[in-house]
Amino acid sequence: MIDIASASAEILSEAGFSTAIIDLGERTGLAFESDTVLGFLIAYDGPEDLLAAWDKDAERAVASQQFGLRRAGQKAWNTYMVLLAGREADFAGATTLGAIEEDLVGTRKIARAGIADMSDLRAALLPLLPLQAAPMLEAVNMPDEIRERTTELPARAIEAFFSNADEAAIIQVLEEAP
């Protein structure tokens, strides 16, 4: 199991977010903010803890940062409430977590359970993170690729194939002994 709050702070910082620990009374939370969005991350041991306390914790978080939110103006519309639990949720718990996420009132909520490692955490925070996969496909030198796959063949034959020689001339080279 990972320390969700500190690991989240690390990941979000890498993504350009500013983060800060906030006190929520019974537990601490993580405030984060980028140029476009801001939000709070609250970590729980298990999904049952999350389901039991998330709404009050969310209220506390918002209340504790009300001045900042007010200062944020339009940006406050892009407030995230990230609720993460370390243990896996059962089907009912997962369904309830899904319902929390789909509730768009007030904040955009991310509610996930089963955050056991950094991979799980990155998957949960994905909406806040830049594109993870960014393929940069370079050009393919097909003659070189073909050459790599024809090393057992006579070099002259391969060069003839890649030359501009007409078909008959190429076949003549192919027919010749290696």
Binding site: E10, F17, T19, F32
Partner: peptide, 18 residues
């Protein structure tokens, strides 16, 4: 218009963990 860059968390505190 651009939004306010930081309203909730000040930029110097970029990393609570670090």
């Amino acid at each position: 218009s651009p939004m306010i860059r930081r309203a909730l968390v000040s930029q110097p505190e970029r990393s609570a963990a670090g």
